[in-house]
């Protein structure tokens, strides 16, 4: 009895051995995902909580409105990327039930985008519609930002089971493929707003590209089988 774990595996009855195989059965995966969801929720909320703390303790930058705009935009982008990373993660880990956290991540991306837009409209522009109108019509980075926001909003509003039923699975899926467009327009928004150093948008865009690539490789591999 040198290695009790291996011994247990080798001598386990078939039923038990199946239990140790990867991926674990759907019921086990669902239990894991359900248990981690509240933690994930809290995690998605931390950027907001930390920012509120910084507001309270006067730790925002000297131009607090710009600081808030950038932070919310940054977290909108990161959570959108996280949403897009779930499917590739499912392929890699073979944990299909991971998709169950995708909606929450997507809704949080939209939530930060709402804050981002709200800060821009109310705090930055002071609801001066003539300036906002000029910004939206004249500035490419605002145009793509607004496009992204429109897409994210329509996906958020139709994210419920009721809407899946109402639209029918096929149509719903077609609509929700717009999330890829949102990824690309977010990248463009970022590229067009930086003044000179493209390092950050470049890094995020490379991450996005690799997420897309993972899907393409997976689909090609499946078609060949």
């Amino acid at each position: 009895m040198e290695n009790p774990a291996a011994d247990l595996f080798l001598h386990a009855p078939t039923r038990q051995r199946r239990k140790l195989r990867w991926p674990p059965p759907a019921a086990v995966q669902v239990r894991w995902v359900t248990r981690s969801k509240p933690w994930l929720f809290l995690f998605c909320l931390t950027p907001l909580l930390l920012t509120l703390w910084d507001v309270y303790s006067h730790q925002l930058a000297a131009d607090p409105i710009k600081d808030l705009t950038l932070r919310s935009g940054r977290w909108g982008l990161r959570l959108l990327w996280a949403t897009l990373a779930i499917t590739p993660l499912c392929y890699i880990t073979k944990l299909r039930s991971l998709v169950r956290v995708r909606r929450m991540l997507g809704l949080f991306a939209w939530f930060y985008a709402c804050l981002h837009l709200g800060i821009y409209l109310v705090l930055d522009q002071g609801l001066a519609w003539q300036f906002i109108g000029a910004d939206i019509s004249k500035r490419p980075y605002i145009v793509v930002g607004a496009t992204t926001f429109t897409i994210l909003s329509s996906l958020a509003l139709t994210s419920t089971q009721g809407w899946v039923r109402r639209l029918g699975g096929k149509n719903w899926q077609r609509l929700h493929r717009l999330v890829y467009v949102a990824g690309i327009t977010t990248s463009l928004h970022f590229f067009w707003l930086v003044k000179s150093d493209i390092t950050r948008p470049m890094v995020y865009t490379l991450v996005l590209a690799s997420l897309f690539l993972a899907r393409i490789l997976h689909h090609n591999a499946r078609r060949q089988r």
Partner: peptide
């Protein structure tokens, strides 16, 4: 004369809320 990517008509004085 606007910057191509933003308006130069207004500015935010650091420490103030409105432009």
């Amino acid at each position: 004369v606007d910057h191509p990517r933003w308006s130069q008509a207004r500015e935010r004085r650091i420490g103030e809320w409105s432009k």
